[in-house]
Design a protein around this nucleic acid. Structure first.
Length: 428
RNA sequence: GGAGAGGUGGCGGAGUGGCCGAACGCGCUGGUUUCGAAAACCAGUAGGCCUUCACGGGUCUCGUGGGUUCAAAUCCCACCCUCUCCGCCA
């Protein structure tokens, strides 16, 4: 969430930010509540001070003086109680409203309503032109007996799948390669829970608002399945005051990811593009509260993922996500879209976000700087590799006329030296 | 699932009604000492909110929320969380 002081002192900037994101929130109400709160705090504090002083007087009073003093204090306390009740009301409403105020997008974020308004900022590689009739990942999967959608659905409903044989191996190869690459760059590997308390979902900004997209196990346990390792990794140090000299902290985690995909019926129904469960390697940076530094690290984690795609010879482009396509918590987001021949377009495979202290405030994630001051950390994250979408890109981009799949060099060691997957079939 | 213990500052850990936002230790910061460092010694060192140009002042917080009391970290109630033992199990 945003700092209440910031909202009150820059209400127009916050309103403009919300408008840019196409999100409604009641800033005027917050400003009004805060001014009432301030006024009340002064009175309440004064009344408490007076009551305390009266208490000390009572303690040292003679038995004869006592009853009168106690009675006088009681009247004061009754008034105090009324003010405290109102103060709590205001506090509760403010807390509720503050959770709904979106982070202010950066100036560099383009205006726009949907992903169609995202602005391409760079491009790497050339989409391949096939001199044969290229197959979709689903066709390739069926051809080799690698993907079983029917049994996946029988096991777990629609948008589920089973990977078989070499494709299951390839999945592990990509995950391991992505993971190892990040460890090599100095990121600390973390293996984290994927079932978390709902307060952790609130802390990272997914709740309130994203409840429909999460699987909840809250009837008995108040737990949710995470949609990304970002959640447990970012919240790893919640409610702590870190030593500033330890920052930035760089983490990498591999986890299963669970997404309900509510409201997407009929969208991307074929294949592995939009599924309820996949694996993902995620990078997270816990940073100092300095815009220039966290911006630099935002570029760094974007570059880390680009390096993976380049090593795997997958053409991609980077887009600067527009206001309307930005989530509530982000200041800015760069999506990487990788070329997917069957879609005849670039499909989103990575998402690099920076949040300033939006998540940290909710999480109580702070650090003590060199000057001794305590500040909220900045947080950042980016996909390193998401299993299903990477498999789509790898299968479709590296397919050969005979149906085999060439394995990019970096993945070969993870596949016991294999340079191609699948048995050759009829060339078409 | 059964039984028990406990949640205190950056960390460890005292504290069972006022002298406690809190002993002591560690850590950190500054100083003395030293050619420099280590060690030793001295001093300082929780966070939030309100107020102040500032120095400062006020107030809240000892898991959370209520209650008792003139007065609560300390007593009572509810809830949350953690740990230990037994059982079951990957």
């Amino acid at each position: 969430m945003l700092d209440l002081k910031f909202i009150v002192s820059h209400p127009d900037a916050v309103k403009a930010g919300a408008a840019k994101k196409h999100i409604d929130c009641d800033i005027d109400r917050i400003v009004a509540l805060d001014s009432e709160r301030r006024e009340l705090v002064g009175k309440v504090d004064a009344a408490r001070a007076s009551s305390k002083a009266a208490g000390k007087k009572i303690a040292s009073a003679t038995p004869e003086e006592r009853p009168a003093l106690v009675e006088a204090q009681a009247a004061e306390k009754a008034e105090l109680k009324g003010m405290e009740a109102r103060q709590k009301e205001i506090g509760d409403e403010l807390d509720r409203l503050l959770l709904l105020v979106p982070n202010v997008p950066a100036d560099e974020v383009p205006e726009g309503a949907t992903d169609e308004d995202n602005v391409e900022i760079s491009r790497w590689g050339e989409p391949r032109t096939f001199d044969f009739e290229a197959r979709s990942h689903l066709e390739l999967g069926e051809l080799h007996g690698w993907i079983d959608i029917v049994r996946g659905a029988r096991l777990a409903g629609s948008r589920n799948y089973v990977l078989i044989g070499e494709l299951a191996m390839l999945e592990q190869a990509v995950m391991r390669y992505a993971y190892d690459s990040m460890v090599e760059k100095g990121f600390t590997p973390l293996s984290v829970p994927t079932l978390v308390r709902s307060e952790t979902m609130v802390g990272t900004g997914y709740f309130p608002g994203g409840e429909d997209q999460a699987y909840k196990c809250d009837e008995r346990d108040d737990l949710c399945l995470v949609g990304t390792a970002e959640v447990p990794v970012t919240a790893f140090h919640q409610d702590e005051i870190l030593d500033g000299s330890e920052l930035p902290m760089r983490f990498v985690a591999l986890s299963s990811c669970y997404r309900r995909e509510a409201g997407t019926y009929g969208k991307d129904t074929k294949g592995l593009y939009r599924v309820h469960q996949f694996q993902k390697v995620e990078q997270v940076v816990i940073d100092v509260a300095d815009d220039a530094t966290s911006l630099e690290h935002h570029r760094e984690i974007l570059g880390n993922s680009e390096a993976i795609l380049q090593a795997l010879e997958l053409p991609y482009r980077v887009v600067n996500v527009c206001g309307g396509d930005l989530g509530q918590p982000q200041v800015q987001k760069f999506d990487i879209e990788t070329w997917m021949p069957s879609r005849d377009s670039y499909g989103e495979t990575h998402s690099a976000s920076r949040f300033h202290d939006f998540q940290s405030r909710r999480l109580g994630l702070r650090y003590r700087g060199e000057d001794g001051k305590v500040r909220h950390c900045h947080t950042l994250n980016n996909t390193v590799a998401a299993s299903t979408r990477m498999l789509i890109a790898l299968l479709e981009n590296h397919q050969n006329a005979d149906g085999t799949i060439s394995v990019p060099g970096p993945l070969q060691p993870y596949l016991r030296g294999r340079t191609a997957l699948g048995r050759p079939v009829e060339t078409r």
